[in-house]
Simulated scan of single mutants.
Amino acid sequence: MRSKWFAILGMLLWIARPTAALALDEAATLALLVRTIQQSESDGVRSSLMKGMLRGLEGRRDVQPPDEWNSLATELARSDDPSIRDAANRLSQIFGDTAATERALATLRDPLAPDSQRQAALASLVSQRDTGLAEELESLLDVDALRLDAIRAYAVIATQDAPRILLSRYATSPREAQSATIETLATRKAYAKELVRAIKDQTVPREHIPSYIARTLRELLGQEFTAVYGEIPELEKNVSERIAKFKRLITDEALATADARRGRVVFQKTCGACHLMYGAGGKVGPDLTGSNRANLDYFLLNSVDPSGDVPEGYRTQLVQTVDGRVLTGVLAEEDSRRIVLKTVDQPRLVIAKDEIEARKVSEKSMMPEGQLEQLPREDLFDLVKYMQTKSQVEAAE
């Protein structure tokens, strides 16, 4: 319980204080936290306070360390608790300690290190934009526990060979890795050009490109993209006619022979990347468990016209960074120093505001348009049947 309250203290010092005083308070707050950690004899308290510091400094680089940090870091490095050693090393990286970066690289390269430690090391090195990381990424694609993180790291650590490396593995990669590859190659103009070539030569099937990625690629490349992909279909003007068409199809008789278990599988493929249902799925869009999803009119209106009435908290954000990335997601958090996006592949993508060159809010939802039209009739009926369930059902095999 005591550790919990210290964790809350650490978080409040960084998140709940007035943003106008942020710059003035930072040095004093860091010094206070470091002194508190020094004075504590509880590993739980120390760990909790450092977690609060890491959360508050998330996305930051080359922060001026408190005067007493170096001596404290040396002490923490001798701790028997690996989580304390790891947190201290991550903080030292944020404070610009090159020795801490080398330790993280050593952990990442160590095949005998626990997967969780290697994942944490990779995340910290990506966050700090370590230039030596580029040489490590290709080998990490062969490590199951690190593959997705390594693919996404290429979005931050730009290399000329990234498209060739990722696309050469595309055909044999699992679907999740293919999705991460598409998302990564859509973040930079040079990468995007290679992705378009891959669509043209069918290395990447056109149908693998989600609509929100297609819109991003159109923003980046314009005619160069649409000449290969084709125009991105926009919704028909008369939404009510399209809803009426589906209501004529989705009859009580059709639903009587539908299978909610198969519908769960359809949901997982078409909706589950962004939406929660019964506790499973993504968190980009709203949780559908408690929504009015059983009402056919409600379901059709939100499916047929997903951009018709997008709540403010779910509007698509397009962010261009000073290092040339283009990122698409939904705003999860924002303060005076950073924004946090939720994307299909990354539930928490932190971007420092001083790294943002341009930013706009799109009127379009990230939810694909015309999605119901692309479903076979049986899949459509099964999906509607699943959406009308009152409790989770077992997925069909």
Rank of each mutant, 00 (worst) to 15 (best):
L9C: 14
I15F: 00
R17G: 11
E26K: 11
E26T: 14
L30D: 09
L32H: 06
V34R: 10
Q38M: 03
R46K: 00
L49C: 06
G56F: 01
D62F: 12
N70W: 02
A73L: 00
E75L: 08
L76T: 02
S79T: 13
S83H: 01
R85P: 03
D97W: 10
R103T: 12
T107R: 09
P111K: 01
D115A: 14
A145Q: 14
D149M: 00
D161Y: 10
D161K: 14
A171I: 15
P174M: 03
R175L: 15
E176H: 05
A180T: 13
L185V: 10
Y191D: 05
L195K: 02
R197H: 02
P210C: 00
E219Q: 13
T226Q: 10
V228G: 08
Y229E: 13
G230E: 11
I232A: 00
E241A: 13
I243N: 09
I243Q: 01
R248T: 15
A258K: 03
A258L: 02
G263Q: 02
A273G: 14
H275N: 12
G281A: 02
V304G: 05
G308W: 09
G308K: 11
E312Q: 12
Y314K: 05
Q317P: 10
Q317R: 04
V319G: 01
V330W: 07
E333N: 11
D335T: 05
S336C: 11
Q346F: 04
Q346A: 04
R348K: 14
K360E: 14
L372W: 03
L375N: 14
M387N: 15
S391F: 02
V393G: 02
E397M: 03
